[in-house]
């Protein structure tokens, strides 16, 4: 059945919605906005052609530079942080105990709760004087706890932490599902060979979970570049842009300053980098993902 004409026609039919949708609702708007990245366009005004003006400006702008670095830093915390935590939680919950359903639900809850509403609670937790965190640290004897959200060193990690908290339950569920595909007899065999739990984790669990891990990693990478609401409600990108990531900067340019051309140019530089990164990942996929 490999490549008969019938299969090709079926494939084409199956992919028809994807192709049409990709064309009309993805590629046309993307091409359009890509073209706009060569214009100076206040949304409510007429566009003027500026050639590579927006791109040239971005490459010479210290602000854009800072924002790109912030984004890389954010992803560097968020992607491994959320996947690592999700993996630990998934492994702990993959035990068939009845209570696991409760914990799964509890950990998944942040993912479905209104961001603005819960972020308000986080602002209080991080509050310098009245915050839960600093009062707890004070109780432990820490005197000079930082002003988390107003401190250039801590603001971005704080935003990343809340983002991890929000999404980790989602990744946990995906990994839990993957864990259930692992044949229990493999553990038994490893134990007979004298493997300790930690060894079993690295020798049995992780290798057999690579397919799920790869999927979750790409997903987390995409999400790490789209953070907006949490930043908005937690730090507003501050102090002094310390927690402004690209998605937030794009939003600021698009919908507060209405510089749509500039926002588009920023986006396409980001897409170029991420696209390259993702495709590289797929290229190296075979090296570490065990396709069952």
């Amino acid at each position: 059945m490999r490549s008969s004409r019938k299969v090709r026609i079926t494939a084409l039919l199956f992919l028809a919605p994807t192709i049409i949708g990709l064309l009309v609702f993805r590629l046309v708007p993307i091409g359009w906005s890509f073209a706009l990245s060569f214009y100076d366009w206040k949304i409510f005004d007429t566009p003027t052609f500026v050639g590579f003006g927006n791109y040239a400006h971005i490459f010479s702008s210290p602000t854009a530079y800072k924002v790109f670095l912030n984004s890389a830093y954010f992803s560097a915390i968020y992607v491994p942080g959320s996947i690592g935590l999700a993996l630990v939680l998934a492994v702990l919950l993959n035990n068939g105990l009845r209570s696991s359903a409760f914990f799964r639900g509890a950990f998944f809850l942040p993912y479905i709760t209104s961001t603005v509403a819960v972020t308000l609670a986080w602002r209080w937790i991080f509050s310098t004087k009245f915050g839960l965190l600093n009062n707890f640290l004070g109780w432990l004897g820490v005197d000079n706890a930082p002003a988390w959200l107003a401190d250039p060193t801590w603001a971005l990690p704080a935003v990343a932490l809340v983002s991890i908290w929000k999404d980790v339950g989602f990744y946990m569920i995906l990994l839990l599902a993957g864990l259930q595909t692992i044949d229990p007899t493999l553990y038994e065999a490893a134990r007979v060979d004298g493997a300790k739990p930690i060894q079993r984790f690295f020798k049995v669990t992780v290798p057999l979970l690579t397919r799920s891990l790869f999927f979750v990693m790409i997903l987390a990478l995409v999400r790490s570049t789209q953070t907006f609401e949490i930043t908005y409600a937690l730090t507003n990108g501050g102090p002094n842009r310390a927690s402004t990531t690209l998605a937030f900067y794009v939003y600021q340019n698009a919908f507060v300053e209405f510089e749509m051309g500039y926002a588009a140019a920023l986006s396409y530089i980001m897409c170029f980098i991420l696209g390259l990164f993702t495709l590289t990942n797929f290229y190296f996929r075979k090296r570490w993902v065990h396709d069952g």
Binding site: L22, R26, L27, P29, I30, W32, S33, L36, I218, V222, T225, Q226, L246, A247, V250, Y251, A254, F255, M260, A263, A264, S267, Y268, M270, C271, L274, G275, T278, L279
Partner: peptide
């Protein structure tokens, strides 16, 4: 996959 990276704000 790659088109999912384009921020919705610009499209």
């Amino acid at each position: 996959l790659v088109t999912a990276f384009v921020p919705v704000e610009v499209t």
